[in-house]
């Protein structure tokens, strides 16, 4: 207590507090996607046949590949935290760089996947899409909205991890103070977590 008393708020760093804040932020993200999952669930029960048919259009191979990529990247982030905690700065940075590469692979795959849909004229507002049965139209709407929003989160995660790398290099993050890498790690796992649910919903339900 004697310590707490004389420290001005700015000098005081609360490790547990900042982690709790991150968790709360993760909840808001989960509910943000949760709203979309609700919409998906409702339309899925109403138009299950159409959803089956439309889901066959999605590329299961790319979907699976991206799942594997994200899972591995999640592991490398978790490992980089272990590295920081055991004072292996260089290894932590290398692991985060691997994560960034994997994230880029994910985005490139996504680019080709979307590009293919656009070639088939299956984009929102296109004539082909509007003339599809109602359920398929809704499926593709959700597909673009959900994977698109997820891709934005991947980008944000990449930025966070990049900042983290620089903070490790500059020595702000070290064995004694690793809140930031832990919190960006949590964010990256969230991106993975959401994908784990998106994957069967978009690619596997055939």
């Amino acid at each position: 207590m004697a310590e707490i008393k004389n420290i001005a708020p700015s000098e005081h760093h609360d490790y547990q507090g900042s982690k709790m804040g991150m968790w709360l932020f993760i909840f808001t993200e989960l509910f943000l996607f949760g709203g979309l999952f609700l919409v998906y669930a409702v339309f899925r029960t109403q138009y299950s046949a159409d959803f089956h048919k439309a889901a066959e259009e999605t590329n299961t191979f790319i979907g699976t590949l991206n799942t594997v990529v994200l899972l591995i990247s999640s592991m490398t982030v978790a490992m980089s935290i272990t590295a920081i905690q055991s004072n292996q700065k260089g290894r932590a940075i290398r692991l985060l760089l691997v994560t960034l590469v994997l994230a880029s692979v994910f985005m490139v795959n996504k680019y080709f996947e979307w590009g293919h849909k656009f070639e088939l004229k299956l984009y929102p507002g296109s004539e082909v899409l509007t003339n599809l049965p109602k359920g398929e139209l809704l499926f593709f709407g959700l597909y673009f909205m959900m994977t698109g929003l997820h891709a934005i989160h991947v980008l944000v995660g990449m930025i966070l991890l990049t900042v983290t790398i620089f903070r490790i290099k500059s020595g702000h993050i070290h064995t004694g103070n690793f809140s930031m890498i832990e919190n960006s790690g949590l964010y990256w796992h969230l991106v993975d977590l959401i994908w784990i649910f998106l994957f069967p919903m978009m690619y596997l339900i055939t």
Binding site: M75, V77, H189, D192
Partner: peptide
């Protein structure tokens, strides 16, 4: 699994 182990 992700929540328990990766997210600690």
């Amino acid at each position: 699994t992700v929540l328990t182990y990766f997210m600690h």
